[in-house]
């Protein structure tokens, strides 16, 4: 049996644009090579300008998304404000490290705008080692493919429309060379004015 992070298959990318950030993921749910779902949610809205992608073991995707929702609901009631992306990244990192020796099998990607509208992205491994970047972060079962695509397609200061195009192309091309991710995708572009979400149709194989 392969690693638990590679049973269900996933691909997720976050990328910074000009005053905006984008986050994209595929929608496949598999049991190893067998595809059992093509509309599996891997990106979750935490608040109006903060999204988290949770590629990994499907059962833990559900648990961690619910746990973070729970923590943020209490945070919002306590502090009467939305959490900052940086603080959220620290929070999820600590949540994962609490289970250092029996980890949740998810490798999250955080994308959001802070209170001043500045883009923030981060990614971490399944025990919460954070990785910050100015341009893009990737996570999932085809990181090499995604890195390769992002490194060749990324341009700094892209407007929301261009950022969508880049993200969509990077994701679709990366998953085409991965047998256990793909089957369409979703892209969220977060700007100060709101979020636009678009579904992508990918190769059905």
């Amino acid at each position: 049996m392969s690693s638990p992070t590679e049973i269900n298959g996933a691909a997720c990318i976050a990328m910074v644009g000009k005053g905006c950030v984008g986050i994209a993921a595929d929608t496949r749910l598999g049991m190893q090579a067998m595809t059992v779902g093509t509309d599996f949610q891997k990106i979750f809205k935490m608040h109006d300008r903060l999204y988290v992608g949770l590629p990994g073991l499907a059962t833990d995707v559900h648990t961690i998304s619910a746990t973070m929702r729970f923590k943020l609901n209490l945070f919002k009631l306590r502090e009467e404000r939305d959490i900052e992306p940086k603080a959220f990244s620290t929070l999820i990192s600590n949540t994962l490290y609490e289970k250092r020796f029996a980890p949740w099998f998810v490798e999250p990607v955080v994308a959001g705008l802070d209170k001043d509208g500045a883009p923030f992205i981060s990614a971490m491994d399944l025990i919460g080692a954070e990785c910050f970047a100015k341009d893009f972060v990737v996570s999932g079962t085809c990181p090499d493919n995604m890195y390769g695509m992002c490194e060749s397609m990324y341009k700094p200061d892209q407007e929301p429309e261009a950022l969508f195009e880049t993200l969509a192309q990077c994701l679709l091309s990366a998953v085409d060379r991965d047998a256990i991710s793909g089957w369409g995708g979703i892209v969220h572009i977060i700007t100060a004015d709101g979020v636009t979400s678009r579904r992508l149709r990918g190769r059905p194989d």
Binding site: R78, E84, A87, T90
Partner: peptide, 15 residues
């Protein structure tokens, strides 16, 4: 600070 990586708001400390 350990949980969120940012300084505690004064009101939170007061609470």
């Amino acid at each position: 600070k350990r949980t969120y990586g940012e300084p505690i708001p004064v009101l939170e400390l007061v609470r």
